[in-house]
Design a protein around this nucleic acid. Structure first.
Lengths: 344, 344
DNA sequence: TAGAGTAACTAAAACGTTTTATATGTTTTT
DNA sequence: AAAAACATATAAAACGTTTTAGTTACTCTA
């Protein structure tokens, strides 16, 4: 079905020159050619619709101009909502800006060896590990290999790989400090899936702020969720059963915060009068909850963009940069946070 | 930085055989080898950690085992919410199932020629056009080329390309018939961005049902949106100003339906008592609106999966299949639709 | 007027594979 | 004992480029 693409040989023939001439004319630089010759080459190229074969070029130049993106899954049960899509978009931007192409490989933990093959088969000059859960063996595999790599999002702290992420700890720490300054003392947390280090880090920031204020975190104020709506609802119900219940709930992401809001509303608990709620991400629909969600905005697109840039830098410099870039999160104040109700 | 990967030549040397022997042993089939020789090859492979270079193989076999995914952007202003991510996940699934790799190329309408180069450079055996707006010149470009292609989602009806999509027209038609059967006569619509044919088709289904029931669509009951929250809000406000206003509003997607719900609530309009609202997509958060959104569920993952399968079929059969696969949408009845209020 | 220099172009090697055609022994058949 | 068949292995061409190292034919220079 597919017509064979014209090759450089056919162009050379059509223009009555050698193939080296074609190549040299096409990419300038080497050698000097008579304008008339160059013209003949160009018209032959035009006429045949010639386009250099990327595979052959890659082989000859030992340069594929392609990076890989490694993700466990773009979406699924552990709904990281739109995170993957947006970060990926940033990566794509960063790569195409520098004329790199992007191959994406899905790495189910169960088939990581096969997936790793798609990375280590010479088709890719480097890879971005996109928000992988700590359980995925591909992380260690990539570390051992000497393929230039950058992590975007969640990364185990043990990893030596350069990384671009949001400033989870600091952002949560600051936000919880703010809650404390409003008068909250009983502050609960619904974490994301702890298999993701971002979830752990957000909890860490929360704990830092609590400890700093001399508040002992209470186990009944903690629920281990998984970033899903349902986890938010379940978590809210459980935290409500604590005696006394928390006056504020910080959530590992917006999705769970929405679940919390929903559950609280059904229980007749007023937000923010009785309980304050804090999200993370700033999804588009965070403006739509009632009341609108106060949350920490994560610069997803930029994470992808910067990760791509950092990777390309490494590739071009030819050495591993030990670099960690933490982008700030922005506190977006809406209406789910207020001072706690007066104690009775 | 990156150690050179071991080549087949080094393996051959280590095993004391020729490179043809290594290749033949590795991929079985051709020739017959003494078990002892084969063993030597395998251990050499093992020891050196040899992995065939995908680029070189592609060149030699005239087969890249790679497909391209062409999208304008994964997300952005025209927030197609999580659509791209989920469909892409399906594509990835379908491709990896058959051991194909996936290259993804972003095609801003402004730079479509350059992007097209990434597809027509021989690096890809076929392409999936992912939910492109009609305005993107890449569509026509792909049609003219003879690269096997499949459209996933939105496609202009003029296109001859095989396509996998949700059954936009039928689903909307049925749903609007249902509204009519409940007693609605004044039914409004907030369309998606008409640059996307899916938006047009949904409107078409709506019009079919209206005309069939002898209802003349009223221009004041129509708002041209763009799939965004804000468009939903704006649309609702405009439709409310009609005299008389519609008793039901069908929306081009859930995002806009959420905007509608929000605006209606602010205006003190009761849903579904005074106005019914219908969405499209069934996002996870559709359960969370108040009241929970009645909507048409679109099988996004499956669209991607089937598109990939169809493309691989075409590639392997070597001919263009003139196939259009429309997957059914499922009506998910929640609480935003009810019979219209009695006329006064 | 020989050598050096230069302008314009090209042959051939290289990239790392697959695959076709062939070589080299050994065994079996006639 | 020659021919055929078989088992095992390999040389070399091919894939479509880039790039290195030339070559050829002029034109200067001394």
């Amino acid at each position: 079905m597919r017509k064979k693409l014209p090759t450089i040989r056919e162009v050379a023939e059509a223009a009555g020159v050698s193939i080296s001439t074609v190549s040299n004319v096409l990419y300038g630089k080497r050698g000097f050619y008579a304008p008339e010759t160059a013209q003949r080459v160009w018209t032959a190229v035009e006429q045949l619709g010639y386009r250099p074969n990327h595979i052959a070029r890659s082989l000859a130049r030992r340069h594929t101009f392609t990076i890989g993106v490694v993700a466990e899954q773009l979406l699924g049960n552990v709904s990281h909502n739109l995170y993957f899509g947006v970060v990926l978009d940033g990566i794509l931007q960063g790569a195409t800006d520098r004329d790199y192409q992007v191959k994406i490989v899905r790495v189910p933990a169960s088939a990581y060896e096969k997936a790793f093959g798609h990375i280590e088969d010479g088709s890719v000059e480097g890879a971005i590990l996109l928000a992988l859960p700590a359980s995925n063996p591909i992380i260690e595999r990539m570390e051992q290999s000497n393929i230039p790599s950058v992590v975007a999002g969640s990364i185990p702290p043990s990893s030596k790989l350069p990384c671009v992420d949001v400033e989870d700890i600091g952002a949560t720490y600051q936000a919880v400090r703010w809650l404390i300054s409003l008068g909250h003392r009983r502050i609960g947390i619904i974490t994301g899936n702890l298999n993701y280090w971002s979830a752990r880090r957000r909890e860490q920031g929360y704990l830092m702020a609590l400890r700093e204020a001399g508040i002992e975190p209470h186990p009944a104020w903690r629920y281990e969720g998984n970033f899903s709506l349902a986890a938010g609802e379940a978590g809210a119900l459980q935290l409500l059963r604590a005696e006394p219940p928390p006056t504020a709930i910080v959530c590992g992401n917006d999705r769970m915060a929405m679940g919390v809001l929903h559950a609280l509303q059904r229980q007749g608990v007023k937000v923010p009068e009785q309980i304050s709620v804090l999200g993370f991400d700033d999804e588009e629909t965070a403006t739509l909850t009632s009341p609108p969600l106060t949350t920490l905005r994560q610069p997803m697109f930029e994470i992808g963009l910067k990760a791509a840039e950092l990777l390309l830098q490494q590739i071009e410099l030819g050495k591993r940069l030990q670099h960690t870039l933490l982008l700030p999160a922005e506190l977006v104040v809406r209406e789910t946070v207020a001072p706690p109700p007066p104690d009775q």
